[in-house]
Design a protein around this nucleic acid. Structure first.
Lengths: 172, 172
DNA sequence: GGTCTGAGTTGGAAATTCCAATCGAGAGCC
DNA sequence: GGCTCTCGATTGGAATTTCCAACTCAGACC
């Protein structure tokens, strides 16, 4: 752990290279690599809240119900990983505070969030209905997540196969 | 924990209702619900291995490098959640053993796995190349994951928005 | 009987998470 | 200045989870 007071403030794009270690460190498997960023408890839920527009410490805390120590830790790690970026803001009559905003990389996690929403809806739904939906921001029309071919046409889920890539080994 | 010797063997569809508690238990948020199934350490990596065709205890153990006690635990929980189903098999000259196979629900997690693969490729790549690719099982053509509209046409990632559904509340 | 093998179990150390109490800098008040 | 309030953040310690290694158990083989 680092005290995050000495952590970078603007160098988030750099941080992807520095902190989490994109490049040749860490596991080869993309899933394992992604889990290193969002696999700890609460991390993805912070991202979910950020995707829904929350950005302040108190908003995350109240929404998640996570204790403040781990929230501090997760925010710092997500900043270090380049998923969130820390900004200062000042509300009238208050001292300067920090807010946390998704980077492009963080917005890319909408894909992961969407996948989990869709799986939950399909295979493990909440009886009281859906708490989130995915829609087209412009038209409001519902969207779903699907594997698409190069022309952008959805193929059946059953057509998709995960196969070894060039860097595959038996142990991933 | 249960001793999984008394666990169901065929009733996986039921198990989704029974064990994990689809229905009105647990969080409303689909992401949180999904994380209850695959959010523990190693769980999704077990599913990843299963998606790649692994099914035996020893295969998971050797591939993951996880200790056998947590592997036992995760396999039992995934079976209880209806993601995996336990089958008996016997190899010539060996005693009967168990293998673990994806249910339909488990195969649905390819969506989540695919999302993480794609995010990793885009925002946190391994310098040595990709260890997994997603392709059309029939043609071998590369596939990607995208939000699609009702006609099955991909929309830009930036068009997708996660909005509150009917069951939404401020605390999810 | 004795040995081997693979799946699972157990005991205890290490790491992580949880919870509640506390800190500290800046703002407002008097 | 001195006092209080607020809110990110930190700390101490309990509870939970993960890790690691040794062990058990059952069936196959000799």
């Amino acid at each position: 752990m680092q005290t995050q007071s000495e952590a970078r403030s603007q160098a988030d794009r750099e941080a992807v290279g520095g902190a989490v270690g994109a490049g040749d460190d860490g596991p080869r498997c993309q899933i394992a690599r992604t889990l290193e960023v969002i696999g700890e408890k609460w991390s993805l839920l912070v991202v979910r809240d950020a995707l829904r527009g929350r950005s302040r410490f108190s908003e995350f805390r109240d929404s998640l119900g996570a204790s403040t120590d781990i929230l501090t830790d997760r925010l710092a790690k997500l900043v270090a990983a380049g998923v969130l970026e820390k900004r200062a803001y000042r509300e009238a009559g208050s001292r300067e505070r920090s807010s946390y905003h998704l980077t492009e990389s963080g917005r890319g996690l909408a894909l992961v969030a969407g996948a989990m929403i869709q799986w939950g809806d399909t295979f493990n739904p909440y009886a009281g209905g859906r708490s989130s939906r995915v829609v087209d921001a412009a038209t409001g029309a519902p969207l779903r997540l699907a594997f698409v071919d190069e022309s952008g046409r959805a193929v059946p889920d059953s057509s998709a196969a995960i196969v070894p890539g060039p860097a595959a080994r038996t142990t991933w």
